[in-house]
């Protein structure tokens, strides 16, 4: 519970309020976090994502699994806004974001991390996290000269919050270090920190366990649980089925660009179609 308190502080009022709103709404009508309908993405003649539909309720930790080439990362790119869909729609918290640019989606509360983390190598850890702060007056060309006091005050608040997030993710000692000096696992934590700076409602995690040593993995799992308790939802692409079983309440399986099966982790891993997809080498 202490950890949750930390998160509430660093996430600010926004998250705390939304948690309350979700809690009161839950008994009657669970709020739809993410709603994807008939989403496709073609590359030439091939459909990397083929008419995929997916619904995530608020407050879920959902897994997305499937053999290599199933279209999981393309689906992430479509949801986060790195790619435009060829057809279909994406609704986030009731709003259609199918055509919104990536920075607007993050501002709306939808963040993502990468399988191979990509920090801004030349910047410090703190600067990397600060980039994602929302509504920074100092990002406007004239504000730095016309209202320096307001810019400085916002910057101080953002730095305090960024430091709390960095501490929360056990990167405290590295705040001033260039991101290029971080290990692979630390870079994963840095990406998560950057996403958290934007106070997200849903985080897309691309293989959080890949290339991370077991000790650091336990830190990542614990932090995902803390954040979930604080009201954040997750969609996780992961090959480590043990991790999926431990964290996820529901699992969606893709193969050959299509959504194959959805269900609980136990049911999905016993499903013959899923076994066939993994053993049969995809579609």
């Amino acid at each position: 519970m202490a950890r949750m308190g930390v998160f509430r502080d660093l996430a600010g009022n926004r998250i705390v309020h939304t948690v309350r709103a979700d809690a009161t709404a839950k008994p009657s009508r669970p709020q739809r976090m993410l709603e994807i309908s008939h989403l496709s993405r073609r590359f030439g003649a091939a459909r990397a994502v083929d008419r995929v539909s997916l619904r995530l309720p608020a407050g879920c930790i959902a897994g997305l699994i499937g053999p290599n080439g199933a279209g999981k990362t393309t689906l992430f790119n479509l949801i986060a806004g790195s790619l435009r869909p060829s057809e279909g729609r994406i609704r986030f918290l009731g709003r259609d974001i199918s055509r919104a640019p990536a920075h607007r989606r993050l501002a709306a509360g939808l963040g993502r991390t990468f399988q191979i983390p990509r920090p801004f190598a030349a910047m410090t850890v703190l600067e990397n996290v600060l980039l994602a702060a929302q509504g920074q007056p100092g990002e406007r060309p004239f504000a730095n000269w016309l209202s320096p006091a307001r810019v400085a005050a916002a910057e101080r608040r953002n730095i305090d919050r960024a430091r709390e997030i960095i501490d929360f993710l056990a990167l405290g000692r590295l705040a001033g270090a260039p991101a290029a000096t971080l290990s692979g696992g630390q870079r994963k934590l840095l990406e998560l920190a950057r996403v958290l700076m934007a106070a997200p409602r849903l985080i897309l995690l691309d293989e959080p366990a890949a290339g991370v040593n077991p000790t650091l993995l336990e830190v990542i799992i614990a932090r995902i649980r803390d954040l979930h308790a604080g009201g954040v939802s997750f969609l996780i692409v992961e090959h480590n089925l043990d991790l999926v079983g431990r964290l996820c309440s529901e699992v969606h399986v893709m193969a050959g660009g299509r959504m194959l099966v959805s269900g609980t982790p136990g049911a999905v891993t016993r499903d013959p179609r899923v076994i066939e997809a993994y053993l049969g080498g995809g579609a």
Binding site: G81, H103, N128, A132, R194
Partner: peptide
Amino acid sequence: DLARLAGIDA
């Protein structure tokens, strides 16, 4: 591209 994903209005 990464800057956009990090929330920056490029």
